[in-house]
Design a binder for these strands. Structure first.
Lengths: 147, 147
DNA sequence: TTACTTTTGTTGTCATAACAATAATTGTTT
DNA sequence: AAACAATTATTGTTATGACAACAAAAGTAA
């Protein structure tokens, strides 16, 4: 990593083409299989499938989004009948978010699509190299999160 | 990469936390240094700094955005006095996009900030591992772009 | 030339991100 | 208890992405 061009190259790596391509393919796979979800909505569902009935703050922390983003995601997902807000009786500042029947039923289908998309994207890449990517990204997170 | 959880993990790697964290820090570095640019606007400028006076289609290809996105980016950047549209006399479908004086003058400052942010993010990571990340992403692009 | 196709850019719509400001509630300190 | 601080969720604003639909111009084939 010496020249300016290579830095820019790395930036594009990190935030540009590859993540966008992955999102595009994932969205296409969702739509082609009748799943009407955005990837952001999926990232919220993934938290709820592990921990139904958590707060919006918890969802924000786990999905790496800010509170306003979660508010609006939940707004849309409530409209679509995927989740339901219930006031927290122990803390009236807080809502608890629960999956509806629909929100629960799509889990298997959605996860199969996500897994298939990941498999497709990493075809032909060694486990070793994938672990290296994980390591590098973990380190980058550490470097950036001090800020 | 065996279990469902690890696939999800890899997805988050690819499109989630790390790119967002990087963007957040880059935006902060821009603002703290009086640079009023979004990262998307920067990605357009980076193309123009290499090839001033190109078409919007060219900008779309090089920055991995679709035409509508480029149209609106150029709209905003024209408002901000960074670039200027000029009709292409050889092809009246096409606009050529030119940097203004302001758009040219900020290049050095902006690139220094981008480079500093990349340096900060990859501190302590070996060149070897960074090259592996590049390789893996290149392969992922190939896997996805067939689609 | 005429008809068809492709290319280039624009507009409309919807969903999201980032950020600032705010309201309501809870926690803490004196 | 009262004042202050922190937490949780919401709303407003601006910028962007993805996609569909469209218009104008250029290219191509009959």
């Amino acid at each position: 990593m010496q020249s300016i061009l290579e830095y820019q190259d790395f930036y594009n790596l990190l935030t540009g083409r590859t993540p966008q391509a992955f999102n595009r393919v994932l969205n296409k796979n969702f739509r082609q299989n009748g799943v009407e979800l955005t990837k952001e909505q999926w990232s919220i569902l993934a938290v709820l499938w592990e921990n139904d009935g958590c707060s919006q703050q918890y969802l924000a922390d786990k999905s790496f989004r800010d509170r306003p983003s979660v508010t609006r995601l939940i707004d849309n997902m409530e409209k679509d009948g995927l989740v339901k807000r219930k006031p927290d009786v122990n803390d009236r500042r807080s809502n608890l978010i629960f999956l509806t029947k629909k929100g629960k039923q799509i889990q298997e289908k959605v996860m199969n699509l996500v897994n298939a998309t990941v498999e497709e994207s990493i075809k032909g890449i060694s486990v070793e190299n994938i672990l290296t990517v994980k390591e590098v990204f973990h380190k980058i997170n550490q470097n950036l999160e001090v800020k």
